[in-house]
Simulated assay, not measured.
Amino acid sequence: QVCLAELQTAGRGRRGKFWQSPCGANIYMSLKWRFNPKKLIPNGLSLVIGVAIHEALIDIGIEDVKVKWPNDIMVKEMKIAGILIEVFADTSEHSDAIIGVGLNFDMSRQLGSSIDQPWTDICSHLSKKIGRNDVAGILIAYIIQALKTFEREGFHPFFSIWDKCDFLKGKTGKVVKSDGQSNVKFQGISTDGALIVVNDSKERQLIHSGEVSLKIE
C-alpha cells in the first residue's frame, strides 16, 4: 500500500523535526509493508531503503549520490531525501512498517529558505526533463524490490552498496546523545547496519540506535 501526497501540513523527520513540505514541489510518500509474522524484522531497514533510493536516483541520471547513516540521502554534500520508519504490531501479530520518504524534486530557494541545512533537489542535477510521477514510480519499484530482498536475506545483500557510497565514512565529527557528546571518526557500518565510530580514546564503538545526532566537522 502506497500513499503519495501533494503537500504535508505536519510533515516530520527523525526526532520530531519538521519536514518542509510545500505543495507540488517534492515527493512525499508513505509505504506500508507487512513483514512475515514468524520472523523478526532484520536490522538495517532504514539503511535498505536508503540504498533503494540511492539506486533509483542513479537510475534517473543523478551523480555523486551518497547515503548518510541512518536515514538521509545526499547529493554533492547536500541533503536530497530523508526516511522515517515506524513499526507497528497489530492483533494478528503481523509487523507492519510504515516507511515515509521525502524526496526533493523541484523546490525553489524561496520555498526552501527555512531549511536549516544544505539541501538540493532532483531537477537541479538533471539536464533532461523528467516527470515527478515518473520519479515516484521508479522510486516505489526500487523500494519494493529492496524490501522483498531484505525480507528474504536481511541486510547482507545491501552492505557492499552502502559501503561504496557511505557519506560519513572517513570523516570526523561528534556523536551527540542525551547524556553528552563525544568526538569520533566515522569508520563505516557493520554487517548488520550499526554505525562504527572510534573515539578520542581509540575505542571502537557500535551505534545501533538512530536516536542520536551526528555532527560532521
Rank of each mutant, 00 (worst) to 15 (best):
Glu6Arg: 09
Leu7Trp: 03
Thr9Met: 02
Ala10Cys: 07
Gly11Glu: 04
Gly13Phe: 11
Gly13Arg: 11
Phe18Tyr: 12
Ser21Leu: 10
Gly24Lys: 03
Asn26Ser: 15
Leu31Lys: 10
Leu31Ala: 10
Lys32Leu: 14
Trp33Met: 00
Lys38Trp: 12
Lys39Val: 02
Leu40Arg: 12
Ile41Arg: 04
Leu47Asp: 01
Ile49Asp: 02
Gly50Asn: 07
Ile58Tyr: 00
Ile60Ser: 03
Asp64Trp: 00
Val65Ala: 04
Val67Asn: 10
Lys68Phe: 02
Met74Asp: 00
Val75Glu: 06
Glu77Gly: 01
Met78Asn: 14
Lys79Arg: 10
Ile80Cys: 09
Gly82Phe: 04
Ile83Leu: 04
Ile85Trp: 07
Ile85Asp: 01
Asp90Lys: 03
Thr91Phe: 08
Glu93Phe: 14
Ser95Leu: 14
Ser95Trp: 01
Ile98Met: 12
Ile98Pro: 00
Ile99Asn: 03
Gly100Val: 05
Gly100Glu: 08
Gly102Lys: 09
Gly102Ala: 05
Leu103His: 08
Leu103Ile: 09
Asn104Gln: 03
Phe105Lys: 04
Met107Lys: 01
Leu111His: 07
Asp121Ser: 15
Ile122Ala: 03
Ile122Asp: 01
Ile122Glu: 08
His125Asn: 13
His125Val: 06
Leu126Asn: 08
Leu126Ile: 07
Ile130Asn: 02
Asn133Asp: 14
Asp134Thr: 14
Ala136His: 07
Gly137Lys: 13
Ile138Arg: 14
Leu139Cys: 05
Leu139Ser: 03
Ile140Ala: 07
Ala141Cys: 00
Gln145Tyr: 01
Ala146Lys: 05
Leu147Ile: 09
Leu147Val: 04
Gly154Ile: 06
Gly154Ala: 05
Phe155Val: 05
His156Ile: 10
His156Asn: 09
His156Tyr: 08
Pro157Asp: 11
Phe159Gln: 06
Phe159Trp: 12
Ile161Asn: 12
Trp162Phe: 15
Trp162Glu: 03
Phe167Lys: 03
Thr172His: 08
Thr172Val: 07
Gly173Ala: 08
Lys174Ile: 00
Lys174His: 11
Val176Asp: 08
Lys177Tyr: 05
Gly180His: 12
Ser182Asn: 04
Val184Gly: 08
Val184Ser: 07
Ile189Ser: 06
Thr191Lys: 14
Thr191Gly: 00
Thr191Met: 07
Gly193Gln: 07
Ile196Cys: 08
Ile196Met: 13
Val197Phe: 06
Arg204Lys: 15
Gln205Trp: 05
Leu206Gln: 13
Ser209Trp: 01
Gly210Arg: 07
Val212His: 04
Leu214His: 03
Leu214Ala: 01
Lys215Trp: 04
Glu217Val: 07
Glu217Arg: 06
